[in-house]
Nucleic acid binder design. Sequence first.
DNA 1: GGCGTGACTATGG
DNA 2: ACCATAGCCACGC
Length: 112
Amino acid sequence: MTNLISDSIRDDIYRIVKIIPLGRATSYGAIARSIGYPNHSRLVGKILSNIIELDNNIPAHRVVNSLGILVAKNNFASEDKMQVLLEAEGIVIKNNRIVNWRKIFWDPFEEL
DNA sequence: GGCGTGACTATGG
DNA sequence: ACCATAGCCACGC
């Protein structure tokens, strides 16, 4: 039988992304660390791209890279959708990057 | 079992 | 602040 890591952590990722507060955002690495797989930030993004296809309600736009840069734009319906969704929550974006990232950043660990 | 890939990250210049 | 580089490792050929 195959025992893929991606299968075992999919639900954890889903659950965490679901509770990212409106107007805040977190990173792939932060999520990976919070679920006990600190070296799998890449996998988090990959799984997120799968999840968004099944549930367009999940706030996947609130996940960016460790610098606050929107690196997932290609996975949304339109090129500017991710940015539009974030700006609609009051998040300011300049040159593809979240302004005041330190303040906007939400750490999943603080929710445990 | 090797190899390329990726919604990544840390570090150094 | 920007860019390059190396490290990372599951996953799908």
